[in-house]
Amino acid sequence: MNNIKVSVIVPVYNASQYIGRTLDSILSQDFDGFEVIVIDDGSTDGSLEIINNALKDSNVPHKIVHQENAGVSVARNVGIDESAGDYLVFVDADDYVSEKHLSSLYNGKTDYSLTLYAKKEGDKLTSLDTYSQDLISTDDFIKMELNMQITFNFFQLMYRSDIIKDNNIRFTPGIVYGEDTEFAHKALNYGEEIAINNEVTYFYVQHPESAIRTTEYRRFDIVRIFENIADFYSKNDKEEFSNLIITSRIPKAIFGNMNFFFYSGYDFDEVMAKMRELNLFEKLSKYEGDFKFKSKIRLFLLNPKLYYKMWKKLKNSI
């Protein structure tokens, strides 16, 4: 396995409907010098057989790791440990990439590189942000993410492997929603620059079984994740980022997810009980930012039931 420039890590759990397409898209890259590491996380639906059939005749270096079900974070961590490439790329088992994904990302110079992604839901394809520059500092990028000026997902990045391994950056086991955000923030803290290619090369597939759609109140796990990230930045002498998380990113995450539950038809009293259990009212009150959003939060905190009634009447206009 000499001259492996990039390791592509693919965690799989019961993805028999999708994993064949995913692996085909990876194996079809117009890029030399990469390996594929597939971690079957205890699948019971025939995924492992599909993986073996897809890779058995491939000339692309590959490893297939089969383990008892331990969750996507553990599977990705195993992939990191097994990797030999100079850079790491992550592809989820139900997504797929264009043939230019690796060649668009790889430059062999910067700590990170980024391409765009599109959401695919049925026949609908939605492209998101574009960038005005082709190189950005990691600090500037982090600020944009924390201010929610960009729509970012960890799989858009190619990560320099030695940064990840030397700093022991891993995914937190047991977290369903937000573990990838924590990983990306911690990784970016140790790098300098991100090269940007404004080409859509990753396709993020939305379907009824997607993890984000089946997490229920675990969407609020993102609050704990951002508290961990705030603590991490504080310990690394980046109080600006830590404060921005506490006074902006967390309140916005709470409010956004609360409204998601309302929009999805969750019971008001049940949502309020969960928010009290997680002490989210106090955390929401720490918001410091634009007047309009702060007014929404104040209205809600003053009278949650009134806010809810107004929300039902006006929906997303408040």
Rank of each mutant, 00 (worst) to 15 (best):
I4E: 01
K5S: 05
V6K: 05
V8N: 04
I9P: 11
I9D: 15
V10M: 08
V10I: 13
A15F: 12
S16Y: 09
Q17P: 15
I19H: 01
G20Q: 10
R21P: 15
T22Y: 00
L27P: 04
S28Q: 09
G33S: 03
G33Q: 02
E35I: 01
V36P: 13
V36Y: 06
I37A: 07
S43Q: 06
D45G: 06
G46Q: 01
I51H: 00
N52S: 12
N52P: 00
S58N: 03
N59P: 12
N59E: 15
P61H: 00
H62M: 03
H62V: 07
K63F: 04
V65D: 12
E68G: 15
N69E: 11
G71I: 12
V74A: 07
A75V: 05
R76T: 06
R76W: 04
R76K: 10
I80C: 03
E82I: 02
G85S: 05
D86R: 07
Y87E: 07
Y87Q: 07
Y87M: 08
F90R: 04
F90D: 13
V91C: 08
V91K: 03
D95V: 08
V97N: 06
V97A: 05
S104D: 09
Y106V: 07
N107E: 08
K109S: 14
D111F: 02
L114N: 03
K119A: 12
E121Q: 08
G122S: 00
T126I: 07
S127C: 13
L128Q: 07
T130H: 09
D134F: 10
D140L: 08
E145K: 13
N147D: 14
T151E: 14
N153F: 12
Q156R: 06
Q156I: 12
M158G: 08
R160Y: 08
D162T: 09
K165L: 02
N168D: 15
F171E: 09
I175N: 04
Y177L: 05
K186G: 10
Y190T: 15
N198F: 04
V200D: 04
T201N: 15
Y202K: 05
Y202N: 01
E209D: 15
S210W: 04
T214S: 09
E216Q: 11
D221C: 05
V223E: 03
I225F: 01
I229P: 03
D231P: 13
Y233K: 06
K235T: 14
K235C: 10
N236T: 10
K238S: 14
E240Q: 11
T247Q: 07
R249S: 12
G256W: 00
G256T: 01
M258L: 01
N259T: 14
F260M: 12
G265K: 00
A273S: 10
A273K: 03
R276M: 12
R276Y: 10
L280E: 00
L280F: 00
L280G: 01
L284K: 00
S285I: 07
K286L: 11
K286H: 10
D290I: 04
D290N: 05
F291P: 12
L299M: 14
L302Y: 13
N303T: 13
N303S: 13
W311H: 05
W311G: 02
K312H: 07
K313Q: 14
I318L: 00
